[in-house]
Design a protein around this nucleic acid. Structure first.
Length: 499
RNA sequence: UCCUCGGUAGCUCAAUGGUAGAGCAUGCGGCUGUUAACCGCAGGGUUGUAGGUUCGAGUCCUACCCGGGGAGCCA
């Protein structure tokens, strides 16, 4: 018998195999045990029939608790009812390690409890699915750029100066000198693009901002392509092709994972060329428009309707509770918790809507979009959108100006649809030495620190562009998660540095 | 930093100012095809902390601590 992984079982129907893994759940009947085994590659149900196994095997299987480590030998049987389409008829079971009191039970847990046990939470099904999608996205990122002749190069993580001068960075002591953890590899990326044409960096980046939202981490992974001889239009084209590729690869290769996550796959299949491209000025008009207000009104109506029907259901349950049978009462109790949780969510959104409305209606040309503004913009479209040509004042100092309007910078953001918001930010960098020198002065940046960067405009300066894609936000969007913290194995965020 | 919601059994949550409960998990028992299986029994509590109001506080008031998600900022 060969040691096989659960993921490969479907190709081994009818043969006898050995599996090594952990017990994720167990169901017991007289003379019959159902062991749900996981090994990282998948999950399979193993049937242990007392009549078919030795008493040692039966005892091992009976004793096994959640997350005990097991070796199971058995025959692979096709059964359409099972996830993965197969189950294992056990011939032999042995206990490798008996677990006592595994803290994460097969019922609901709060986020603080789970985050404190992230090292164990990763074993859970949803996390398994998310991490597999993350892996697929990482592979696709490399494939996409490698196929197009990009060189993967690494920017330093320790830097002596802030890239854009505005963000709050993590400060460290570098042999008596102040240094920072990088917030972007872009400036070094530009240098490498001038050396190799098309490059991308892919590594961790750090932001010390005290953001406490579902879209923020203090440590996250970013892929940053940088291309010589690319203007803004070519840049947008690349970003579009890139996202289409990522979505398509995941839809093709991670269907099980997406289904397990309850992701609306059709929404990912709508990620197709061309993405709507609107200028910042058009976006502002759309945001302030009656059409946006109508979307908010519609949302309000849906929420109020849902609240009413949930409250009715809760009242009906309460009325029926007295006469209900024991098992039915339990079901009502469970449903009551669901209803209360959802009602809390609805209440929060209802509190937010007036603020969203005000922010959108009173938006002034010249400021940057807030989180709710981005969400509202994406509600108007069925796939990701590209917003370009922002006011220069809200964008970084190195952005090229729009030759047709000096107030505008040739920057672009890609906003994921369904309200997930910004996942790409980038633009065309200025190739003009005098302009860049002036910008450094205007932004009060230390000129000496940027001398090497100015060199890129002194020797063979060419139009060039690039963008940064946040890996966790991309996984967050593709998986349809509630929070980016689930899209990285060990999230670092405000108030969270362990495990 | 500000706004907002919350903190009750190991976990998830109930509890008009009036005897603190349920499910899950754990242990024991039952059931030969279960899908977060089901059924029976058992153990399990300083209601975040410190004050206050009250005959009486999980519930009301004040302060603080911790957490959730929003603002600002951003990928």
């Amino acid at each position: 018998m060969e040691i096989t992984s659960i993921g490969a079982l479907a190709d081994n129907a009818g043969s006898a195999v050995i599996l090594k893994g952990w017990l994720t759940n167990k169901r017991v009947s007289k003379g019959l045990l159902f062991l749900v085994l996981r090994d990282g590659s998948g999950i399979v149900q193993c049937i242990v029939n007392q009549r078919d196994v030795s008493s040692d095997s039966w005892q091992a299987a009976s004793q096994a608790t959640q997350e005990s480590a097991l070796e199971v030998a058995g025959t692979v049987v096709v059964d359409a009812r099972q996830t993965g389409g197969v189950e294992l008829q056990a011939i032999h079971v042995s206990l490798i390690h008996l677990t006592r009191y595994y803290p994460i039970t097969p019922k609901a847990h709060g986020i603080e409890f789970l985050m404190d046990r992230r090292h164990l939470w990763l074993r859970s099904r949803r996390q398994w699915a998310v991490m597999r999608v993350r892996n697929r996205v990482i592979m696709s990122i490399h494939e996409f750029f490698q196929e197009r002749g990009f060189l993967q190069m690494d920017a330093p993580i320790l830097t002596g100066n802030a890239v854009e001068g505005t963000s709050t960075l993590f400060e460290i002591d570098y042999f008596g000198q102040t240094a920072y953890l990088t917030q972007s590899g872009q400036l070094h990326g530009e240098a490498m693009a001038m050396a190799f044409g098309k490059i991308y960096t892919f590594g961790p980046t750090f932001r010390a901002e005290k953001s406490k939202t579902r879209r923020h981490l203090t440590e996250f992974w970013m892929v940053e392509p940088e291309m010589a001889f690319y203007d803004l239009d070519m840049n947008m084209e690349l970003a579009e092709d890139f996202l289409i590729r990522l979505a398509a690869d995941v839809v093709r290769d991670c269907r099980n994972e997406l289904e397990l996550l309850g992701r609306d796959i059709a929404a990912l299949e709508r990620v197709q060329k061309p993405f709507p491209r609107i200028t910042y000025t058009e976006a502002v008009e759309l945001l302030k428009s009656d059409r946006t207000m109508a979307l908010l009104d519609a949302r309000l109506k849906i929420l109020l309707g849902e609240r009413l029907s949930l409250e009715r259901e809760r009242a009906d349950n309460k009325a029926a509770y007295g006469q209900a049978k024991e098992w039915k009462r339990r079901r009502m109790d469970a449903r009551d918790i669901e209803i209360n949780t959802r009602l809390d969510e609805i209440a929060e959104e209802l509190r937010n809507i007036p603020a969203w409305r005000k922010s959108a209606r009173e938006f002034e040309w010249g400021s940057d979009f807030g989180g709710s503004d981005e969400t509202l913009l994406t509600w108007h479209f069925e796939c990701p959108i590209i917003v370009h040509r922002y006011p220069a004042a809200v964008k970084a100092f190195y952005m090229e100006r729009d030759p047709e309007d000096e107030r505008l910078a040739l920057g672009m953001d890609v906003l994921a649809h369904e309200g997930f918001g910004e996942i790409i930010g980038g633009g065309q960098r200025t190739d003009n030495l005098e302009f860049l020198e002036k910008q450094i002065a205007v932004h009060n940046l230390p000129r000496e620190a940027f001398e090497w960067y100015l060199d890129l405009r002194r020797y063979g300066s060419v139009p060039h562009s690039g963008f940064g894609l946040g890996l966790e936000r991309t996984v967050f969007w593709i998986c349809g998660l509630d929070h980016v913290r689930e899209s990285i194995p060990f999230p670092r965020m405000l108030g969270r540095i362990a495990p």
